[in-house]
Amino acid sequence: MSKSLPPSSPDTPMTTESEPLLPILNNGGSSRRNVMKGVGLTLGLAAFGKAISPLATIPDNVSVDEFLQQHYKELTDDDKQEILARLESEAKEDYGADVSITDHRPIPGVKFGYAINLSKCNGNGKCVEACHKENNHDRSTGESYIRVLEMDKGSMDMEAGNTTYDHTVPQDDKFYMPVQCQQCDNPPCVTVCPVEATWKEEDGIVVVDYNWCIGCRYCEAACPYHARRFNWEEPTIPAEEVNPEQSYLSNRIRPQGVMEKCHFCLHRTREGRLPACLEACPTGARVFGDLNDPESDIVWLLKNKRVFLLKEELGTQPSFFYFFDS
């Protein structure tokens, strides 16, 4: 740009000795003021360094490999093996637990569905507890992917419901409705995620890549079923209580600052087993199966019972059904 200027113009500042290199300190004013500004700047920077010094603990928790890790869908099989091994050693280091982390992929042709018989559920909360243990939830908060609403008979108004009841069940005038991720076919949480850290897999399960999520919690605001949970701090869990059977997209111990959610126990169901909440249910209220298999219990149920979907009017198209015994 200097070419069009008159040759007399001293336009090569860095080579001219009279030109100050740092005009912020030398431009105009008295030299005393400039010294003061220099001192002020130095003190300010030092104070800033001190102020953000708590960040120095982060390299202990976030390795370079984790920082540079790519999105799940872009990982090769070799990448995955390396990452799984790293996560296993991190579990050993941070929690003292020997765990085995695998990467369960969907069974081709399978589409999972879940149903709950509200006539049978009696609100005993075994499913809540089983989820807590199976999925290595933070012990201090007693977190679980399932919430059970105690509701008045004669109404479906959730506003009159209660999730924090603490008395013997079932109460005569109440019925009970467990709510967890509805694995929507049109999931609002997936649409809003700015970094594609959550998506719907071929078998209908909505998963989260815990190593890709940036923790903006937009999905938590978007979900109409309160199905998502955030890791407000690093989960605590004693080594002997860690469930060592883990999967990358499901129940491995989650890092601080990321979202998580119900994944239909994909580390079990993709091996042909049943979800932990179903196995724990003493009333037989829960039915799980393959919606594409005409012989499955869930398909029989959809054909022979009258079912309803939670908040169907929102158009989220859940794979989760509620029904009553007639």
Binding site: H71, V192, V195, C213, I214, C216, Q256, V258
Partner: peptide, 26 residues
């Protein structure tokens, strides 16, 4: 507000995965 500001680069087009135009946040 981000839980993981260290993963900010996941949003950068080209480097990360930018869920445009579906996410209003993008």
């Amino acid at each position: 507000d981000l839980g993981r500001p260290d993963r900010f680069w996941h949003m950068l087009p080209g480097l990360g995965r930018f869920n445009f135009p579906f996410s209003m946040l993008t």
